[in-house]
Design a protein around this nucleic acid. Structure first.
Lengths: 208, 208
DNA sequence: ATAAAACTAGACTCACCAGTCCACTATACA
DNA sequence: TGTATAGTGGACTGGTGAGTCTAGTTTTAT
């Protein structure tokens, strides 16, 4: 079951595979799938067209593999949810951190790409969701539960509360970025908005 | 300045124009722009290819015109915000109403299409936003202000509060639909979630 | 060494499609 | 009725791009 096949010959180069995947990720994310040709891809990867087809079956498979890799790359850490720190600080920092990640050029393009391909490539959407929103929601829900156990919050449904907080935080800014709108919210205004989210979330779910 | 030109001849048929726009809206929304050819469009509209090019300049213009029309069609009414009804009822009904609209097959496809075309067709995104989210946010913010004036709420920033409520309500369900995820939230669970949103929003912003 | 497989470069097939052109018909205004 | 314009159908152009094929080269296990 090892991937060292028993036949003679060279064996496919792992290095080339990585080159291809890297080039594919970059080009697909910046240009989209339709606007990226296999020729262009081969050239960017420094590889012949034939090698593309030998490593991956065709364009669609390559696309899925490339996006898959990027989604996994986006998985975030649980470190943000430190039980020792004060609750408002944790929420506030998480909000800032999340927005910075969500609004990055790359994340927006990846997000758009997944949504565009929702019908044709449902698998990448599931991957994207699992790596990003789903795990974050889980982390936050667990954290809120722990805080409730400590008596710092009164929460009847942690899943709901986590969802409410996260989507409240994302708010308009994320939508504006996805839609590439003319006038987008400025950084200063956003800080105020995030402050407000934390304040009222705590007012709603506070134990006092 | 009338659109009746003074020259002789037939004059372009308004009926054909409508046929074209209808067919274009349907096909573009169901298949996307790249997967829809002008030939197919002409046939679906019951019109020759030449007529397509005579009424609209080319594919992109037609696409923009078609999506434009659909966005305008989606504009929603202010009726939901009835000052005579109890505040919790208004919010709860609005939430249900909004989710029904947002999760409809058509709205999801239109939303996806706008996001996909965000780079290439920024104008349709702005139209979409103005017709949908922007006006709804405005209606809700105004309503919350009136309620605050009546002493039913304590709100320091009605824009923020409206945003928080709307995006909280949309929550995971809308994202799941956009991403066409395998397991989507069921109706029963969603009702509970919306109840929860209203409850905690009122707790956060209530005057008592 | 040698055989098997990977890899390259580039030509090639085949299909699709945006947009144009043309000869013709249909319609409406003056 | 004559004429300008709209509209039709179909052929055509030009470009693009996915995927295949071939002939030759490089690598590597036996």
């Amino acid at each position: 079951m090892s991937d060292q096949s028993k036949t003679r010959g060279r064996g496919k180069s792992e290095k080339k595979k990585v080159q291809i995947l890297d080039a594919a990720t970059t080009l697909f994310i910046t240009q989209g799938i339709d606007a990226t040709s296999m020729e262009q891809l081969a050239e960017a990867a420094g590889v012949s067209k034939q090698t593309l087809y030998s490593h991956f079956g065709g364009k669609e498979e390559l696309f899925v593999a490339a996006i898959k890799q990027r989604c996994i790359h986006y998985a975030l850490s649980e470190e943000l949810f430190d039980d020792q720190r004060p609750l408002p600080d944790v929420l506030r920092d998480m909000a800032s951190h999340l927005m910075e990640l969500l609004l990055s050029e790359d994340a927006i393009k990846l997000h758009r790409l997944c949504i565009s391909g929702a019908d044709q490539f449902p698998e990448i959407c599931n991957l994207f969701y699992d790596a990003g929103p789903k795990s974050l929601l889980k982390f936050l829900a667990d954290y809120l539960q722990r805080q409730a156990n400590e008596g710092n919050l009164k929460v009847d449904n942690c899943g709901f509360a986590a969802q409410q907080f996260l989507f409240m935080v994302k708010g308009e800014a994320h939508m504006e970025a996805l839609l590439n709108l003319q006038d987008q919210i400025n950084a200063e205004e956003m800080e105020k908005y995030l402050d407000s989210c934390v304040k009222y979330f705590l007012k709603a779910y506070g134990s006092s």
